[in-house]
Nucleic acid binder design. Structure first.
Lengths: 114, 114
DNA sequence: TTTTTATATTAGCATATGCTTATATAATAA
DNA sequence: TTATTATATAAGCATATGCTAATATAAAAA
């Protein structure tokens, strides 16, 4: 039983969102890990404001979820999104970002609330 | 043996190209069929100039190939592109466009040079 | 050759995008 | 309460985008 495919215009708008270096990196990062804004700022070497604006776009589209934990707001990939399957297919073609997260961990800059 | 993955910025630029209704439709159409510009104009109900400009972007990126046949220039999907595999994965999530081509055929508007 | 046909290109314009700077908000700490 | 911290929002600006209208090009037909 095949899932219903989103309309082509919905698909195009998801691709448009991912068609930006910063947002594609963010989505790739949150696919397997929760990250908070300050981690993106560190990893992507961008201003907090700019990162925040990109996150808003992703959140408005429903591609990422946010969850407050103490001081921080953590973002994660939303697997319930109608295009989540396509996004995962795309991410298989994107170089792994885990290395960068591990570096962050080594530098003691990883935020952990568990 | 895994193929080398394009850099994230190259992937993002391909996604940006596909993140437009018109171009995503074009790529979906040429995945399985050669089409000429006037067919796109008919199918997408857009001006010839606009279609031509979208095709140029796709061609400049190497996602489609062009081939002259008599009066017409036919466009087809370039399976040699470094991101061709990803594009095919994406297109599996896009509604089938063949129906529209069949309608064009029925209307006697399909161009055939074989 | 001239004319026609299919497609490409250019210029101009309105809108969208992504950044910076400055400020606001909301939760925590003191 | 006030101060601090993490994040969000708003305004402003330079650049990118996608369209239309007009024109150019290049192959085929007359």
């Amino acid at each position: 039983m095949e899932k219903i495919k989103p309309e082509i215009k919905d698909t195009a708008s998801v691709l448009k969102l991912l068609g930006d270096n910063t947002r594609l990196s963010i989505v790739s990062l949150v696919q397997n890990h929760e990250c908070c804004v300050c981690e993106f700022v560190e990893l992507l070497d961008m201003s907090q404001s700019s990162v925040s604006q990109h996150l808003r776009k992703l959140r408005d589209a429903g591609l990422v979820k946010e969850q407050r934990k103490g001081h921080w707001i953590f973002y994660s990939f939303n697997r319930e999104h109608p295009s989540a399957g396509m996004v995962e297919d795309i991410l298989r073609h994107v170089p792994d970002q885990n290395e960068k997260l591990q570096q962050l961990e080594r530098d003691g800059l990883r935020i952990n609330c568990d």
